[in-house]
Design a protein around this nucleic acid. Structure first.
Lengths: 146, 146
DNA sequence: AAAATTGATACTATATTAGTATCAATTAAA
DNA sequence: TTTAATTGATACTAATATAGTATCAATTTT
Protein backbone atom coordinates (compact mmCIF):
# COMPACT_ATOMS: atom_id res chain seq x y z
CA UNK A 1 0.00 0.00 0.00
CA UNK A 2 1.57 3.18 -1.21
CA UNK A 3 0.43 6.33 0.53
CA UNK A 4 2.21 8.89 -1.63
CA UNK A 5 2.09 8.48 -5.39
CA UNK A 6 4.68 9.96 -7.75
CA UNK A 7 2.48 13.00 -8.34
CA UNK A 8 2.57 13.96 -4.73
CA UNK A 9 6.16 12.95 -4.28
CA UNK A 10 7.28 15.05 -7.25
CA UNK A 11 5.04 17.90 -6.20
CA UNK A 12 6.64 18.00 -2.76
CA UNK A 13 10.14 18.02 -4.22
CA UNK A 14 9.25 20.77 -6.67
CA UNK A 15 7.72 22.88 -3.94
CA UNK A 16 10.82 22.42 -1.81
CA UNK A 17 12.91 23.71 -4.70
CA UNK A 18 10.63 26.72 -5.12
CA UNK A 19 10.48 27.40 -1.40
CA UNK A 20 14.27 27.35 -1.24
CA UNK A 21 14.44 30.04 -3.95
CA UNK A 22 11.53 32.06 -2.63
CA UNK A 23 11.07 35.34 -4.47
CA UNK A 24 12.61 34.30 -7.78
CA UNK A 25 11.37 32.34 -10.76
CA UNK A 26 12.51 28.80 -11.48
CA UNK A 27 11.72 27.19 -14.81
CA UNK A 28 10.04 23.82 -15.01
CA UNK A 29 13.01 22.64 -17.02
CA UNK A 30 15.55 23.50 -14.34
CA UNK A 31 13.49 21.88 -11.60
CA UNK A 32 12.96 18.78 -13.72
CA UNK A 33 16.65 18.45 -14.49
CA UNK A 34 17.88 19.10 -10.99
CA UNK A 35 15.41 16.83 -9.27
CA UNK A 36 15.09 14.10 -11.85
CA UNK A 37 11.39 14.63 -12.48
CA UNK A 38 9.92 13.97 -15.95
CA UNK A 39 9.60 17.42 -17.54
CA UNK A 40 6.10 17.28 -19.02
CA UNK A 41 4.77 15.48 -15.99
CA UNK A 42 6.15 18.19 -13.75
CA UNK A 43 4.62 20.94 -15.87
CA UNK A 44 1.19 19.53 -15.27
CA UNK A 45 1.80 19.28 -11.56
CA UNK A 46 2.96 22.89 -11.45
CA UNK A 47 -0.07 24.10 -13.37
CA UNK A 48 -2.24 22.36 -10.83
CA UNK A 49 -0.44 24.21 -8.04
CA UNK A 50 -1.23 27.50 -9.74
CA UNK A 51 -4.92 26.63 -9.70
CA UNK A 52 -4.66 26.07 -5.98
CA UNK A 53 -2.80 29.36 -5.48
CA UNK A 54 0.30 27.74 -4.10
CA UNK A 55 2.57 29.26 -6.74
CA UNK A 56 2.50 31.79 -9.57
CA UNK A 57 4.04 31.66 -13.03
CA UNK A 58 5.56 33.98 -15.60
CA UNK A 59 5.58 33.25 -19.32
CA UNK A 60 8.44 33.62 -21.75
CA UNK A 61 12.20 33.81 -21.53
CA UNK A 62 13.36 34.10 -17.92
CA UNK A 63 9.90 33.00 -16.91
CA UNK A 64 9.05 30.15 -14.62
CA UNK A 65 7.34 29.48 -11.34
CA UNK A 66 7.58 31.20 -8.00
CA UNK A 67 6.30 30.44 -4.53
CA UNK A 68 3.14 32.31 -3.60
CA UNK A 69 1.69 30.73 -0.48
CA UNK A 70 3.67 30.64 2.74
CA UNK A 71 5.49 27.27 2.79
CA UNK A 72 4.50 26.84 6.42
CA UNK A 73 0.88 26.95 5.32
CA UNK A 74 1.22 24.16 2.78
CA UNK A 75 0.65 20.76 4.33
CA UNK A 76 1.25 17.32 2.90
CA UNK A 77 -2.44 16.62 3.47
CA UNK A 78 -3.30 19.41 1.04
CA UNK A 79 -0.94 18.04 -1.58
CA UNK A 80 -2.33 14.53 -1.18
CA UNK A 81 -5.81 15.93 -1.62
CA UNK A 82 -4.83 17.81 -4.75
CA UNK A 83 -3.05 14.92 -6.43
CA UNK A 84 -4.69 11.84 -4.97
CA UNK A 85 -8.05 13.04 -3.80
CA UNK A 86 -9.31 13.39 -0.26
CA UNK A 87 -8.00 10.81 2.16
CA UNK A 88 -10.72 8.26 2.69
CA UNK A 89 -10.06 4.99 4.39
CA UNK A 90 -12.84 3.10 2.68
CA UNK A 91 -15.78 3.78 0.43
CA UNK A 92 -17.99 1.76 2.71
CA UNK A 93 -19.23 4.65 4.74
CA UNK A 94 -20.81 6.22 1.69
CA UNK A 95 -22.58 3.20 0.31
CA UNK A 96 -26.10 3.04 1.53
CA UNK A 97 -26.63 -0.67 0.95
CA UNK A 98 -23.99 -1.48 3.51
CA UNK A 99 -23.99 1.34 6.00
CA UNK A 100 -27.48 2.71 5.57
CA UNK A 101 -30.74 2.41 7.35
CA UNK A 102 -30.87 -0.95 9.04
CA UNK A 103 -27.41 -2.37 9.53
CA UNK A 104 -24.92 0.19 10.74
CA UNK A 105 -21.49 -0.20 9.25
CA UNK A 106 -19.31 -1.60 11.95
CA UNK A 107 -16.20 -0.28 10.34
CA UNK A 108 -17.47 3.24 10.20
CA UNK A 109 -16.43 4.32 13.64
CA UNK A 110 -12.92 2.92 13.51
CA UNK A 111 -12.46 4.09 9.98
CA UNK A 112 -13.31 7.66 10.78
CA UNK A 113 -11.06 7.65 13.79
CA UNK A 114 -8.10 6.36 11.80
CA UNK A 115 -8.89 8.69 8.96
CA UNK A 116 -8.59 11.70 11.21
CA UNK A 117 -5.38 10.41 12.74
CA UNK A 118 -3.79 9.94 9.35
CA UNK A 119 -4.91 13.33 8.17
CA UNK A 120 -3.70 15.13 11.24
CA UNK A 121 -0.31 13.43 11.04
CA UNK A 122 0.15 14.62 7.50
CA UNK A 123 -1.09 18.05 8.48
CA UNK A 124 1.80 18.39 10.89
CA UNK A 125 4.16 18.18 7.95
CA UNK A 126 4.45 21.42 5.99
CA UNK A 127 6.70 22.38 3.12
CA UNK A 128 8.30 24.92 5.42
CA UNK A 129 9.14 22.28 7.98
CA UNK A 130 10.54 19.93 5.36
CA UNK A 131 12.67 22.70 3.96
CA UNK A 132 14.18 23.45 7.36
CA UNK A 133 14.82 19.73 7.87
CA UNK A 134 16.49 19.62 4.49
CA UNK A 135 18.71 22.59 5.24
CA UNK A 136 19.68 21.10 8.58
CA UNK A 137 20.53 17.79 6.91
CA UNK A 138 22.73 19.53 4.36
CA UNK A 139 24.82 21.30 6.95
CA UNK A 140 28.20 19.67 7.36
CA UNK A 141 28.24 17.52 10.46
CA UNK A 142 30.20 19.02 13.31
CA UNK A 143 33.39 17.12 13.98
CA UNK A 144 33.53 15.17 17.17
CA UNK A 145 36.50 15.52 19.45
CA UNK A 146 38.17 12.22 20.23
CA UNK B 1 -6.74 8.46 -1.70
CA UNK B 2 -8.33 5.24 -0.70
CA UNK B 3 -6.66 3.41 2.16
CA UNK B 4 -8.70 0.21 2.08
CA UNK B 5 -9.36 -1.42 -1.28
CA UNK B 6 -12.30 -3.71 -1.95
CA UNK B 7 -10.10 -6.75 -1.28
CA UNK B 8 -9.40 -5.68 2.23
CA UNK B 9 -12.88 -4.36 2.80
CA UNK B 10 -14.47 -7.62 1.65
CA UNK B 11 -11.93 -9.65 3.58
CA UNK B 12 -12.78 -7.86 6.79
CA UNK B 13 -16.50 -8.43 6.30
CA UNK B 14 -15.99 -12.09 5.52
CA UNK B 15 -13.83 -12.53 8.58
CA UNK B 16 -16.44 -10.84 10.73
CA UNK B 17 -19.01 -13.32 9.42
CA UNK B 18 -16.71 -16.24 10.19
CA UNK B 19 -15.77 -14.89 13.59
CA UNK B 20 -19.45 -14.52 14.44
CA UNK B 21 -20.03 -18.21 13.64
CA UNK B 22 -16.81 -19.41 15.20
CA UNK B 23 -16.60 -23.22 15.30
CA UNK B 24 -18.80 -23.95 12.31
CA UNK B 25 -18.29 -23.90 8.58
CA UNK B 26 -19.74 -21.20 6.37
CA UNK B 27 -19.71 -21.62 2.60
CA UNK B 28 -18.28 -18.94 0.35
CA UNK B 29 -21.65 -18.81 -1.34
CA UNK B 30 -23.54 -18.00 1.82
CA UNK B 31 -21.07 -15.32 2.85
CA UNK B 32 -21.13 -13.82 -0.63
CA UNK B 33 -24.92 -13.70 -0.70
CA UNK B 34 -25.38 -12.34 2.78
CA UNK B 35 -22.72 -9.68 2.54
CA UNK B 36 -23.07 -8.73 -1.09
CA UNK B 37 -19.57 -9.73 -2.07
CA UNK B 38 -18.86 -11.07 -5.59
CA UNK B 39 -18.68 -14.84 -5.18
CA UNK B 40 -15.57 -15.74 -7.17
CA UNK B 41 -13.76 -12.71 -5.88
CA UNK B 42 -14.53 -13.75 -2.33
CA UNK B 43 -13.32 -17.29 -2.93
CA UNK B 44 -9.91 -15.99 -3.87
CA UNK B 45 -9.77 -13.80 -0.80
CA UNK B 46 -10.69 -16.76 1.41
CA UNK B 47 -8.04 -18.97 -0.16
CA UNK B 48 -5.50 -16.30 0.63
CA UNK B 49 -6.61 -16.31 4.25
CA UNK B 50 -5.99 -20.04 4.40
CA UNK B 51 -2.43 -19.50 3.24
CA UNK B 52 -1.96 -17.08 6.09
CA UNK B 53 -3.49 -19.49 8.57
CA UNK B 54 -6.35 -17.21 9.50
CA UNK B 55 -9.02 -19.74 8.56
CA UNK B 56 -9.40 -23.38 7.52
CA UNK B 57 -11.60 -25.00 4.89
CA UNK B 58 -13.51 -28.21 4.28
CA UNK B 59 -14.28 -29.51 0.79
CA UNK B 60 -17.54 -30.86 -0.48
CA UNK B 61 -21.18 -30.70 0.55
CA UNK B 62 -21.58 -29.01 3.91
CA UNK B 63 -18.05 -27.76 3.51
CA UNK B 64 -16.91 -24.19 3.77
CA UNK B 65 -14.61 -22.03 5.80
CA UNK B 66 -14.07 -21.74 9.51
CA UNK B 67 -12.16 -19.36 11.75
CA UNK B 68 -8.79 -20.65 12.87
CA UNK B 69 -6.81 -17.77 14.33
CA UNK B 70 -8.11 -15.89 17.35
CA UNK B 71 -10.05 -12.90 15.99
CA UNK B 72 -8.36 -10.69 18.57
CA UNK B 73 -5.04 -11.58 17.01
CA UNK B 74 -6.04 -10.51 13.52
CA UNK B 75 -5.34 -6.84 12.91
CA UNK B 76 -6.42 -4.64 10.06
CA UNK B 77 -2.73 -3.96 9.42
CA UNK B 78 -2.23 -7.65 8.70
CA UNK B 79 -5.13 -7.70 6.28
CA UNK B 80 -3.89 -4.61 4.50
CA UNK B 81 -0.49 -6.23 4.18
CA UNK B 82 -1.99 -9.41 2.76
CA UNK B 83 -4.22 -7.72 0.22
CA UNK B 84 -2.48 -4.45 -0.53
CA UNK B 85 1.11 -5.05 0.41
CA UNK B 86 3.06 -3.54 3.26
CA UNK B 87 2.11 0.01 4.17
CA UNK B 88 4.74 2.29 2.74
CA UNK B 89 4.26 5.99 2.58
CA UNK B 90 6.54 6.55 -0.39
CA UNK B 91 9.02 4.65 -2.49
CA UNK B 92 11.52 7.43 -2.12
CA UNK B 93 13.33 5.99 0.83
CA UNK B 94 14.38 2.97 -1.18
CA UNK B 95 15.64 4.73 -4.26
CA UNK B 96 19.34 5.32 -4.07
CA UNK B 97 19.46 8.14 -6.59
CA UNK B 98 17.34 10.30 -4.35
CA UNK B 99 17.99 9.18 -0.82
CA UNK B 100 21.43 7.67 -1.20
CA UNK B 101 24.90 8.60 -0.29
CA UNK B 102 25.24 12.34 -0.65
CA UNK B 103 21.86 13.96 -0.34
CA UNK B 104 19.78 12.51 2.43
CA UNK B 105 16.15 12.27 1.58
CA UNK B 106 14.46 15.03 3.47
CA UNK B 107 11.16 13.25 3.46
CA UNK B 108 12.57 10.10 4.95
CA UNK B 109 12.31 11.05 8.57
CA UNK B 110 8.75 12.35 8.43
CA UNK B 111 7.67 9.53 6.20
CA UNK B 112 8.89 6.88 8.58
CA UNK B 113 7.26 8.58 11.52
CA UNK B 114 3.91 8.79 9.79
CA UNK B 115 4.25 5.27 8.50
CA UNK B 116 4.59 3.92 11.98
CA UNK B 117 1.69 6.00 13.25
CA UNK B 118 -0.58 4.71 10.51
CA UNK B 119 0.48 1.15 11.07
CA UNK B 120 0.00 1.29 14.79
CA UNK B 121 -3.43 2.83 14.43
CA UNK B 122 -4.54 -0.01 12.21
CA UNK B 123 -2.95 -2.47 14.56
CA UNK B 124 -5.25 -1.36 17.32
CA UNK B 125 -8.18 -2.56 15.26
CA UNK B 126 -8.69 -6.31 15.39
CA UNK B 127 -11.44 -8.48 13.95
CA UNK B 128 -12.40 -9.36 17.52
CA UNK B 129 -12.83 -5.71 18.42
CA UNK B 130 -14.85 -4.98 15.30
CA UNK B 131 -17.08 -7.95 16.01
CA UNK B 132 -17.83 -6.71 19.51
CA UNK B 133 -18.54 -3.25 18.12
CA UNK B 134 -20.87 -4.82 15.60
CA UNK B 135 -22.72 -6.79 18.21
CA UNK B 136 -23.06 -3.75 20.38
CA UNK B 137 -24.41 -1.75 17.46
CA UNK B 138 -26.99 -4.41 16.69
CA UNK B 139 -28.43 -4.46 20.16
CA UNK B 140 -31.76 -2.66 20.34
CA UNK B 141 -31.28 0.79 21.78
CA UNK B 142 -32.53 1.15 25.34
CA UNK B 143 -35.60 3.36 25.51
CA UNK B 144 -35.17 6.70 27.12
CA UNK B 145 -37.60 7.90 29.72
CA UNK B 146 -39.23 11.21 28.89
C1' DA C 1 12.64 38.33 -35.21
C1' DA C 2 14.28 34.45 -32.39
C1' DA C 3 14.44 31.70 -28.40
C1' DA C 4 12.74 30.27 -24.03
C1' DT C 5 9.23 29.70 -21.65
C1' DT C 6 4.18 28.62 -19.85
C1' DG C 7 -1.03 27.16 -20.89
C1' DA C 8 -3.87 23.88 -22.46
C1' DT C 9 -4.86 19.58 -23.90
C1' DA C 10 -4.67 15.19 -26.11
C1' DC C 11 -2.45 10.98 -26.24
C1' DT C 12 -0.04 6.43 -24.92
C1' DA C 13 1.70 2.98 -21.71
C1' DT C 14 1.79 0.47 -17.54
C1' DA C 15 0.11 -1.15 -13.19
C1' DT C 16 -3.43 -1.98 -10.01
C1' DT C 17 -7.90 -3.16 -8.79
C1' DA C 18 -12.09 -5.48 -9.61
C1' DG C 19 -14.56 -9.05 -11.29
C1' DT C 20 -15.67 -13.56 -14.13
C1' DA C 21 -15.12 -18.28 -15.71
C1' DT C 22 -13.61 -23.01 -15.82
C1' DC C 23 -12.51 -27.50 -14.39
C1' DA C 24 -10.66 -30.98 -11.36
C1' DA C 25 -10.94 -32.91 -6.66
C1' DT C 26 -13.50 -33.81 -2.51
C1' DT C 27 -17.32 -34.86 0.50
C1' DA C 28 -22.03 -35.50 2.28
C1' DA C 29 -26.22 -37.17 1.39
C1' DA C 30 -29.94 -39.16 -1.42
C1' DT D 1 -23.02 -45.41 -5.78
C1' DT D 2 -24.47 -41.63 -8.05
C1' DT D 3 -25.43 -36.73 -7.55
C1' DA D 4 -24.95 -32.18 -5.90
C1' DA D 5 -22.48 -28.89 -3.30
C1' DT D 6 -18.54 -27.45 -2.31
C1' DT D 7 -13.29 -25.94 -2.34
C1' DG D 8 -8.43 -25.56 -4.99
C1' DA D 9 -6.17 -23.77 -8.58
C1' DT D 10 -5.68 -20.92 -12.25
C1' DA D 11 -6.54 -18.28 -16.29
C1' DC D 12 -8.91 -14.61 -18.18
C1' DT D 13 -11.28 -9.95 -18.97
C1' DA D 14 -12.67 -5.23 -17.74
C1' DA D 15 -12.25 -0.96 -15.54
C1' DT D 16 -9.66 2.46 -13.32
C1' DA D 17 -5.62 4.86 -11.69
C1' DT D 18 -1.00 6.09 -12.28
C1' DA D 19 2.84 7.45 -15.00
C1' DG D 20 4.74 9.49 -18.74
C1' DT D 21 4.97 11.82 -23.67
C1' DA D 22 3.84 15.07 -27.35
C1' DT D 23 2.07 19.14 -29.59
C1' DC D 24 0.99 23.77 -30.51
C1' DA D 25 -0.52 28.36 -29.42
C1' DA D 26 0.54 32.43 -26.55
C1' DT D 27 3.78 35.24 -24.08
C1' DT D 28 8.01 37.59 -22.93
C1' DT D 29 12.91 38.73 -22.93
C1' DT D 30 16.81 39.49 -25.62
Amino acid sequence: MKVLTKNTDYAIRALLALAAKKGSYLSAKSIATEHDIPYQFLRRLLQEMIRYDLIVSKDGVQGGFMMKKDPDEITVTQLIEIYQGKVQVSECMFRKQICGNRARCVLRHEIMRIESVVQSEFEKVTIGKLLRDLEAANKPEPELKP
